[in-house]
Design a binder for these strands. Structure first.
Lengths: 191, 191
DNA sequence: TAAATTTATTAACCCAGGTTAACGAACGGC
DNA sequence: GCCGTTCGTTAACCTGGGTTAATAAATTTA
């Protein structure tokens, strides 16, 4: 279980055997049922996680109460609300498991220890963050330059394998429209 | 000139005198006139910069040729197209100076050397990136949950001091609408 | 398998922003 | 200070997504 994470981390940095052992000891395995929350809106995100199995969605709640699904993470990906995690502020989004999900988690303090004491700890933190940042920038770009139809096509391109695991109203809000509108888009595209 | 950068960096990490001297030697001062490009679309971004004076905008070009201004950076802020810089890919956005601007820049290779050889180099990279990432996430959130009117109000909130330095059509595209639409929004708000 | 619930589609109407063009104001260069 | 250009506003019309509600399809649950 931890070995998946160790493999993943090995793509980014070199680790000694003692460091690998530290990871096995400090990352804690947590399991969630479908619908359970890894993080609720308003809570401070006190741990970062690596998804071993399952899938989560990031949920923003608009002022009118409407829930928006703005991102997904699945097995072999990291999950965390970094905005909340980093400055210990109440999170503006929730993270909900949308399948039975297993996540191995590390606390804020332990992660700082990893950063400080692993030979390449800071580098690990930097590389993860760079990856996430570039993803976020690309998302901003697609929100600026693309219309919903285009984002839907991009979504199918990148996440086609996820489609069978997702209800359509998650996809519609990811794309930035209401369900009836995604239906119209799909109808247009069917031609 | 370099001292401003050194001060800024000192908020994030401790630096030895030799490290400070290295910065004075490796960061190069570049000046740009209003309208000149720090980075053109399609170029690989080969240096990261710290703006000493002036202001830049990030320009995305839509398929139909329309130019969108998606962000600004001003004096005492970093500027770079990280997506391009990090993986040496052609940049999808341009960075244009919209005032006479002075930027001190560091090449990709020198920055890697800083990361590797400064005592807290990797940590510096991580902290900068974390800051940028959180900014990007907040931008994504406001694009998802806010309408243009709201984003305009947020813009005024955060950047009110920039308004006199910006033409309105930069603001309108930042907010995600065409100029006539921002006019309508302003008119609505005037009541 | 049937009933209950959730999810997806469709239709009708509304509205904010897009588009185009015209006009007036502000600005920059000489 | 004048002229040409750029910029901001306004008007008219168009379009795509929002909203609501009804219906149909797909899942769950008993």
């Amino acid at each position: 279980m931890h070995e998946l994470l160790i493999t993943q981390m090995s793509y980014l940095i070199r680790m000694s055997d003692e460091e690998k052992e530290w990871i096995r000891q400090r990352f804690e395995i947590k399991t969630y049922q479908k619908g359970e929350y890894f993080l609720r809106e308003g809570q401070v995100c006190r741990e970062a996680g690596f998804i071993v199995e399952g899938m989560v969605r990031y949920v923003l709640t608009k002022d009118n109460g409407e829930e928006l699904t703005v991102d997904f993470n699945k097995e072999m990906e990291y999950t965390c609300n970094y905005a909340s995690f980093l400055d210990k502020s109440p999170s503006e989004s929730a993270i909900q498991c949308i399948e039975p999900t297993t996540i191995i988690v590390i606390s804020y303090d332990d992660l700082q220890e990893l950063y400080e004491h692993f030979t390449e700890g800071q580098k690990f933190g930097r590389l993860i963050c760079e990856f996430l940042y570039v993803q976020a920038i690309k998302k901003v770009q697609s929100l600026y330059t693309g219309d919903p139809e285009r984002r839907y096509l991009q979504f199918l391109d990148v996440y086609s394998n996820l489609v069978p695991r997702l209800p359509q109203y998650y996809i519609s809000s990811y794309v930035g429209v209401q369900p009836p509108s995604l239906s119209r888009i799909r109808k247009r595209l069917a031609k």
